[in-house]
Write a protein that binds this DNA or RNA. Structure first.
Length: 259
DNA sequence: CAAATGGTCGGCATTACCTCA
DNA sequence: GCTGAGGTAATGCCGACCATT
Protein backbone atom coordinates (compact mmCIF):
# COMPACT_ATOMS: atom_id res chain seq x y z
CA UNK A 1 0.00 0.00 0.00
CA UNK A 2 1.48 3.26 -1.11
CA UNK A 3 0.90 6.19 1.13
CA UNK A 4 2.43 9.45 0.14
CA UNK A 5 1.85 12.90 1.48
CA UNK A 6 0.24 14.95 -1.17
CA UNK A 7 2.29 18.00 -0.53
CA UNK A 8 5.16 15.85 -1.38
CA UNK A 9 3.68 14.38 -4.47
CA UNK A 10 2.58 17.61 -5.93
CA UNK A 11 5.86 19.27 -5.58
CA UNK A 12 7.64 17.42 -8.26
CA UNK A 13 7.06 14.57 -10.58
CA UNK A 14 10.69 13.68 -10.14
CA UNK A 15 9.94 12.46 -6.71
CA UNK A 16 7.43 9.89 -7.79
CA UNK A 17 8.16 6.60 -6.27
CA UNK A 18 11.50 7.77 -5.11
CA UNK A 19 10.61 9.10 -1.71
CA UNK A 20 12.61 12.24 -2.33
CA UNK A 21 9.82 14.74 -2.13
CA UNK A 22 10.16 18.28 -1.08
CA UNK A 23 7.55 19.87 1.12
CA UNK A 24 5.41 22.39 -0.65
CA UNK A 25 3.49 25.11 1.01
CA UNK A 26 -0.14 24.41 1.58
CA UNK A 27 -2.49 26.06 -0.79
CA UNK A 28 -5.97 27.17 -0.12
CA UNK A 29 -8.60 26.54 -2.72
CA UNK A 30 -8.37 30.07 -3.87
CA UNK A 31 -4.69 29.78 -3.98
CA UNK A 32 -5.05 26.80 -6.23
CA UNK A 33 -7.39 28.63 -8.45
CA UNK A 34 -5.21 31.63 -8.75
CA UNK A 35 -2.08 29.68 -9.01
CA UNK A 36 -3.32 27.39 -11.70
CA UNK A 37 -3.10 29.87 -14.45
CA UNK A 38 0.13 31.31 -13.28
CA UNK A 39 1.79 27.97 -13.14
CA UNK A 40 0.89 27.09 -16.63
CA UNK A 41 3.71 29.08 -18.03
CA UNK A 42 6.42 27.03 -16.51
CA UNK A 43 4.58 23.87 -15.69
CA UNK A 44 4.82 22.28 -19.03
CA UNK A 45 8.49 22.77 -19.71
CA UNK A 46 9.46 21.67 -16.26
CA UNK A 47 7.69 18.41 -16.73
CA UNK A 48 8.89 17.82 -20.18
CA UNK A 49 12.41 18.50 -19.17
CA UNK A 50 12.34 16.00 -16.39
CA UNK A 51 15.74 14.55 -16.59
CA UNK A 52 15.09 10.87 -16.23
CA UNK A 53 17.39 9.72 -13.56
CA UNK A 54 16.02 6.24 -13.55
CA UNK A 55 13.54 4.00 -15.28
CA UNK A 56 10.67 5.17 -13.15
CA UNK A 57 10.98 8.66 -14.35
CA UNK A 58 11.53 7.49 -17.85
CA UNK A 59 8.16 5.89 -17.98
CA UNK A 60 6.50 8.88 -16.39
CA UNK A 61 8.02 11.20 -18.91
CA UNK A 62 6.90 8.95 -21.69
CA UNK A 63 3.32 9.29 -20.58
CA UNK A 64 3.59 12.98 -20.35
CA UNK A 65 5.20 13.52 -23.67
CA UNK A 66 2.71 11.38 -25.49
CA UNK A 67 -0.45 11.02 -23.62
CA UNK A 68 -2.10 9.18 -26.42
CA UNK A 69 0.36 6.40 -26.20
CA UNK A 70 -0.47 4.17 -23.35
CA UNK A 71 2.23 2.92 -21.15
CA UNK A 72 2.31 -0.80 -20.65
CA UNK A 73 2.28 -1.55 -16.97
CA UNK A 74 0.20 -3.39 -14.47
CA UNK A 75 -1.33 -0.25 -13.07
CA UNK A 76 -2.17 1.13 -16.45
CA UNK A 77 -4.27 -1.83 -17.35
CA UNK A 78 -7.39 -0.01 -16.37
CA UNK A 79 -6.30 3.19 -17.95
CA UNK A 80 -5.49 1.50 -21.19
CA UNK A 81 -9.11 1.29 -22.08
CA UNK A 82 -9.04 5.03 -22.45
CA UNK A 83 -6.41 5.23 -25.07
CA UNK A 84 -8.82 6.69 -27.56
CA UNK A 85 -11.71 7.70 -25.41
CA UNK A 86 -13.98 10.57 -26.23
CA UNK A 87 -12.43 13.00 -23.88
CA UNK A 88 -13.90 16.36 -24.71
CA UNK A 89 -10.64 18.07 -24.36
CA UNK A 90 -7.57 17.35 -22.40
CA UNK A 91 -7.31 20.51 -20.45
CA UNK A 92 -4.18 19.52 -18.73
CA UNK A 93 -0.89 20.66 -19.96
CA UNK A 94 2.10 18.55 -20.57
CA UNK A 95 2.11 17.81 -24.26
CA UNK A 96 3.18 21.02 -25.92
CA UNK A 97 1.40 22.84 -28.68
CA UNK A 98 1.55 19.95 -31.07
CA UNK A 99 0.13 17.60 -28.55
CA UNK A 100 -2.57 20.03 -27.64
CA UNK A 101 -3.51 20.35 -31.25
CA UNK A 102 -3.47 16.62 -31.64
CA UNK A 103 -5.62 16.33 -28.59
CA UNK A 104 -8.16 18.69 -30.02
CA UNK A 105 -8.38 16.54 -33.07
CA UNK A 106 -8.47 13.24 -31.26
CA UNK A 107 -10.68 14.33 -28.44
CA UNK A 108 -13.79 14.45 -30.53
CA UNK A 109 -13.46 11.09 -32.14
CA UNK A 110 -15.75 8.24 -31.37
CA UNK A 111 -16.17 6.33 -28.16
CA UNK A 112 -14.42 3.39 -29.65
CA UNK A 113 -10.97 2.07 -29.05
CA UNK A 114 -8.46 0.96 -31.63
CA UNK A 115 -10.36 -2.25 -32.19
CA UNK A 116 -13.58 -0.46 -32.81
CA UNK A 117 -15.06 -1.68 -29.58
CA UNK A 118 -17.21 0.62 -27.52
CA UNK A 119 -15.40 2.45 -24.81
CA UNK A 120 -15.22 0.54 -21.58
CA UNK A 121 -15.62 2.34 -18.33
CA UNK A 122 -12.62 2.48 -16.11
CA UNK A 123 -12.85 1.08 -12.63
CA UNK A 124 -10.14 2.44 -10.45
CA UNK A 125 -8.28 -0.14 -8.45
CA UNK A 126 -8.55 -0.11 -4.70
CA UNK A 127 -5.01 1.12 -4.51
CA UNK A 128 -5.69 4.00 -6.84
CA UNK A 129 -8.86 4.93 -5.03
CA UNK A 130 -7.15 4.76 -1.70
CA UNK A 131 -4.37 7.07 -2.78
CA UNK A 132 -6.81 9.49 -4.31
CA UNK A 133 -8.88 9.48 -1.14
CA UNK A 134 -5.84 10.11 1.01
CA UNK A 135 -4.85 13.07 -1.09
CA UNK A 136 -8.38 14.38 -1.24
CA UNK A 137 -8.41 14.52 2.53
CA UNK A 138 -5.56 16.98 2.35
CA UNK A 139 -6.51 18.92 -0.76
CA UNK A 140 -9.88 18.92 -2.41
CA UNK A 141 -8.48 20.60 -5.49
CA UNK A 142 -5.30 20.14 -7.44
CA UNK A 143 -3.08 22.48 -9.30
CA UNK A 144 -1.63 21.29 -12.61
CA UNK A 145 1.60 20.10 -11.08
CA UNK A 146 -0.17 18.12 -8.44
CA UNK A 147 -2.51 16.67 -10.98
CA UNK A 148 0.27 15.67 -13.30
CA UNK A 149 2.34 14.14 -10.55
CA UNK A 150 -0.59 12.20 -9.20
CA UNK A 151 -1.57 11.02 -12.63
CA UNK A 152 1.90 9.73 -13.22
CA UNK A 153 1.97 8.01 -9.88
CA UNK A 154 -1.32 6.27 -10.55
CA UNK A 155 -0.67 5.68 -14.22
CA UNK A 156 -3.75 7.63 -15.12
CA UNK A 157 -4.19 10.58 -17.36
CA UNK A 158 -4.32 13.98 -15.70
CA UNK A 159 -7.83 14.42 -16.99
CA UNK A 160 -8.89 11.26 -15.21
CA UNK A 161 -7.43 12.53 -11.97
CA UNK A 162 -9.18 15.83 -12.50
CA UNK A 163 -12.48 14.12 -13.16
CA UNK A 164 -12.08 11.97 -10.09
CA UNK A 165 -11.57 15.05 -7.94
CA UNK A 166 -14.53 16.80 -9.51
CA UNK A 167 -16.78 13.84 -8.86
CA UNK A 168 -15.38 13.44 -5.38
CA UNK A 169 -16.13 17.06 -4.58
CA UNK A 170 -19.63 16.56 -5.89
CA UNK A 171 -20.13 13.53 -3.69
CA UNK A 172 -18.82 15.39 -0.68
CA UNK A 173 -21.14 18.27 -1.34
CA UNK A 174 -24.08 15.96 -1.79
CA UNK A 175 -23.40 14.23 1.50
CA UNK A 176 -22.93 17.54 3.23
CA UNK A 177 -26.24 18.73 1.83
CA UNK A 178 -27.95 15.62 3.11
CA UNK A 179 -26.46 16.07 6.56
CA UNK A 180 -27.49 19.71 6.66
CA UNK A 181 -30.95 18.74 5.51
CA UNK A 182 -31.29 16.30 8.37
CA UNK A 183 -30.05 18.91 10.78
CA UNK A 184 -32.54 21.47 9.54
CA UNK A 185 -35.27 18.89 9.80
CA UNK A 186 -34.44 18.26 13.45
CA UNK A 187 -34.25 21.98 14.14
CA UNK A 188 -37.60 22.46 12.53
CA UNK A 189 -39.16 19.73 14.62
CA UNK A 190 -37.68 21.14 17.80
CA UNK A 191 -38.90 24.62 16.99
CA UNK A 192 -42.33 23.32 16.14
CA UNK A 193 -42.49 21.57 19.47
CA UNK A 194 -41.33 24.68 21.27
CA UNK A 195 -43.86 26.75 19.40
CA UNK A 196 -46.65 24.43 20.48
CA UNK A 197 -45.61 24.71 24.10
CA UNK A 198 -45.50 28.47 23.92
CA UNK A 199 -48.91 28.65 22.29
CA UNK A 200 -50.30 26.44 24.99
CA UNK A 201 -48.73 28.64 27.63
CA UNK A 202 -50.23 31.74 26.07
CA UNK A 203 -53.66 30.16 26.05
CA UNK A 204 -53.35 29.26 29.70
CA UNK A 205 -52.26 32.75 30.62
CA UNK A 206 -55.09 34.29 28.65
CA UNK A 207 -57.56 32.02 30.38
CA UNK A 208 -56.12 32.96 33.71
CA UNK A 209 -56.36 36.60 32.85
CA UNK A 210 -60.04 36.32 31.99
CA UNK A 211 -61.10 34.42 35.07
CA UNK A 212 -59.11 36.23 37.72
CA UNK A 213 -58.88 39.88 38.77
CA UNK A 214 -55.56 41.36 37.76
CA UNK A 215 -54.40 41.89 41.33
CA UNK A 216 -54.91 38.22 42.05
CA UNK A 217 -53.60 36.80 38.86
CA UNK A 218 -50.05 36.43 39.94
CA UNK A 219 -48.56 34.80 42.96
CA UNK A 220 -46.87 37.10 45.37
CA UNK A 221 -43.51 36.07 44.07
CA UNK A 222 -44.31 36.85 40.44
CA UNK A 223 -44.25 40.22 38.81
CA UNK A 224 -45.62 40.99 35.39
CA UNK A 225 -45.02 44.04 33.29
CA UNK A 226 -48.41 45.39 32.15
CA UNK A 227 -46.95 46.62 28.92
CA UNK A 228 -45.11 43.61 27.61
CA UNK A 229 -46.63 41.03 29.92
CA UNK A 230 -43.19 39.89 30.79
CA UNK A 231 -43.20 37.69 33.89
CA UNK A 232 -40.46 37.65 36.48
CA UNK A 233 -40.57 35.05 39.17
CA UNK A 234 -38.81 36.69 42.06
CA UNK A 235 -38.81 33.71 44.32
CA UNK A 236 -37.23 31.46 41.70
CA UNK A 237 -34.65 33.98 40.72
CA UNK A 238 -33.70 36.24 43.61
CA UNK A 239 -31.11 37.93 41.47
CA UNK A 240 -33.89 39.53 39.58
CA UNK A 241 -35.23 41.26 42.65
CA UNK A 242 -33.57 44.44 41.78
CA UNK A 243 -34.86 44.22 38.25
CA UNK A 244 -38.36 43.51 39.46
CA UNK A 245 -38.37 46.36 41.88
CA UNK A 246 -36.94 48.77 39.41
CA UNK A 247 -39.33 47.57 36.78
CA UNK A 248 -42.24 47.81 39.15
CA UNK A 249 -41.51 51.39 40.00
CA UNK A 250 -41.29 52.23 36.35
CA UNK A 251 -44.55 50.55 35.53
CA UNK A 252 -46.51 53.14 37.29
CA UNK A 253 -44.42 56.14 36.65
CA UNK A 254 -43.32 55.60 33.07
CA UNK A 255 -44.75 52.30 31.85
CA UNK A 256 -43.82 52.84 28.24
CA UNK A 257 -40.21 53.52 29.06
CA UNK A 258 -39.94 50.24 30.90
CA UNK A 259 -40.66 48.28 27.78
C1' DC B 1 -6.68 52.52 -19.79
C1' DA B 2 -10.74 49.93 -21.30
C1' DA B 3 -12.74 46.51 -24.22
C1' DA B 4 -12.39 42.28 -26.82
C1' DT B 5 -10.63 37.79 -27.13
C1' DG B 6 -8.86 33.34 -25.97
C1' DG B 7 -7.48 29.83 -22.66
C1' DT B 8 -8.14 27.34 -18.42
C1' DC B 9 -10.45 26.21 -14.49
C1' DG B 10 -14.21 24.32 -11.27
C1' DG B 11 -19.14 23.53 -10.74
C1' DC B 12 -22.99 21.30 -12.20
C1' DA B 13 -26.28 18.34 -14.64
C1' DT B 14 -26.36 14.55 -17.20
C1' DT B 15 -25.01 10.33 -19.54
C1' DA B 16 -23.09 5.83 -19.81
C1' DC B 17 -21.19 1.93 -17.97
C1' DC B 18 -20.61 -1.44 -14.32
C1' DT B 19 -21.82 -4.18 -10.25
C1' DC B 20 -24.87 -6.37 -7.36
C1' DA B 21 -29.00 -7.98 -5.20
C1' DG C 1 -30.29 -14.95 -17.70
C1' DC C 2 -32.92 -10.72 -16.89
C1' DT C 3 -33.77 -6.50 -14.46
C1' DG C 4 -33.77 -2.42 -11.68
C1' DA C 5 -31.13 0.34 -8.40
C1' DG C 6 -27.09 2.42 -6.99
C1' DG C 7 -22.35 3.88 -7.68
C1' DT C 8 -19.22 6.33 -10.35
C1' DA C 9 -16.26 7.51 -14.49
C1' DA C 10 -16.85 10.50 -18.12
C1' DT C 11 -19.02 14.22 -20.97
C1' DG C 12 -20.84 18.75 -22.14
C1' DC C 13 -21.94 23.22 -20.96
C1' DC C 14 -21.47 27.38 -18.35
C1' DG C 15 -19.57 31.24 -15.79
C1' DA C 16 -15.47 33.14 -13.56
C1' DC C 17 -10.95 34.47 -13.84
C1' DC C 18 -6.68 35.77 -15.97
C1' DA C 19 -3.42 37.10 -19.68
C1' DT C 20 -2.87 39.01 -23.99
C1' DT C 21 -3.94 42.01 -27.80
Amino acid sequence: MVSVGFDDICNTALGLGLGCFVKQENLTQLDHRQQNNKEHDHFLPSLLSLGSSDDTNQSATTIDAGRHHQQASSLSAAASSFSNSSVKKERDLGGGDQDLELERVCSRVSDEDEDGNPRKKLRLTKQQSSILEDIFKEHITLNPKQKQALAEQLNLRPRQVEVWFQNRRARTKLKQTEVEGELLKKCYQALTEENKKLHKEVQELKALKLTTPYSMQLPATVTMCPCCERVVNVSENPSRDAFALEHKSQFFSHPSAAC
